[in-house]
Design a protein around this nucleic acid. Structure first.
Lengths: 235, 235
DNA sequence: AGCGCGACTACACAGGCGTGCAGTAGACTG
DNA sequence: CAGTCTACTGCACGCCTGTGTAGTCGCGCT
């Protein structure tokens, strides 16, 4: 559980740090509500009262986890991409477990309604949108494109059990993760729709945008696009 | 909340049906654990005792919802695609709200560990894999490709709040849903990686598949791929 | 009319939850 | 060496949960 992005600070081996680490892990594994303070305390090897002593409340503990995860990942990305340590195998190897855990945690926290995690989601959408603008992709709605990109990937972290079952490998293991990301590479390499099909679908989607569902023709036609698209993509 | 896929059966307007519908909605909105029997009973306009009378336990109620959702969607797909009612706007318009709700419910139930919902996930992966095999996509790992396709899309249903914030539109509304699916169309139309990049990534991913993480070079290099891929796709 | 049975309600129960709080041990300060 | 502060524990409280159960209502059958 090393976290040497900014070199683990001195007071970070304390019970407080152990509680935070245990909370991050249990929150990520079970969800916020299902992970109890008593379980977290037990996992950290302390009493439940100490959790309250250090963090005040469960909500405050969760906020502390949110902030910690976000700041850690921000520093991580900074070192990774700005300081060019992407090829530094020792750096990447030692930070990866924590990076993976924190990403999982943030997606879970997002699901249970964390403002901090949602902020990070929005930031990632903006980054994706900027990144997209540097490619020569002529999407009619880059923002929706970026949101779909971020949203779909975040969701993937939420169902490791199902992905593991589908692949016959624990996607939490290095081998499983490699396989899963291999699938992701394919997904973003081979287009499923031709430009003509896409344009056609966009035309149909644009046809019924504004009015609320009057359960009439407009709603029906919109729905048709929903299901049609859905079929083509995943059924 | 019409559900005319097999024409709503006669005994389906009963309190039992109202309880099931309320459970589906609250389970989908809040998650299984967070939706209490008392809330479901109140939403259905009955006493909490009646929920137990009809379904026995919360777990049994959830199983009933799982089965109902899966069978409903199976019939829905059958009519939709085999019986060619895809262009029937009345059919599609009237069934879409329920289809959307049940998909959301199943993904939520899957997240909370439902075997039925997980089975449906695996079936969707197999269907996607067959569908992929009819395209001329030369993926080195079609199963991983299909799993990534299904997993990413399922995840999208889990974060409507974040997607709505990113798009400035409630994705539960027709307009918002159209916009979100428009982004999905783009995502599956314009490749983010060239075939060369993909082949390169696959080579790197294949290099470190089998051994458990010894925190040595293998793990480090694998992690590099993780984060590198991640960066390219979503950061 | 009387009877039975399923739909339905009201209420009580045990368990687990987050929280509050009094109290102890140890280290540091004057 | 007394004082103080912080880390830390143990326990009890109130709340909410799923569950159990006794009892009422109303309809259909004989």
């Amino acid at each position: 559980m090393a976290s040497p992005v900014p070199e683990r600070s001195a007071d970070d081996l304390t019970a407080r740090a152990r509680i935070r680490d245990a909370a991050l892990r249990l929150f990520a594994e079970r969800g916020i509500a299902a992970a109890t303070i008593r379980d977290i305390a037990a996992a950290a090897g302390v009493s439940s009262g100490l959790v309250r002593h250090h963090f005040g409340s469960k909500e405050a503990l969760r906020d502390a986890c949110d902030t910690y995860a976000m700041e850690w990942l921000d520093r991580f990305r900074e070192q990774m991409f700005l300081e060019g340590r992407m090829a530094d195998q020792a750096f990447v190897g030692s930070t990866h477990p924590m990076a993976s855990l924190l990403q999982n945690y943030l997606v879970r926290s997002m699901l249970d309604g964390s403002a901090t995690a949602s902020d990070m989601f929005q930031r990632m959408v903006r980054v994706a949108e900027e990144w997209l603008s540097r490619l020569n992709v002529d999407s009619p709605d880059p923002r929706a494109w970026a949101a779909a990109l971020v949203g779909t990937q975040a969701g993937l972290f939420l169902m490791p059990d199902q992905m593991s079952e589908a692949l016959g490998v624990d996607v939490r293991s290095p081998a499983g993760q490699a396989r899963m990301f291999g699938g992701l590479v394919d997904l973003f390499t081979y287009p499923l729709l031709t430009s003509e099909q896409a344009a056609q679908l966009h035309t149909m989607l644009d046809r019924f945008p504004s009015p609320p569902p009057t359960s009439g023709a407009s709603g029906a036609a919109r729905s048709e696009e929903f299901t049609d698209d859905d079929r083509g993509d995943s059924y």
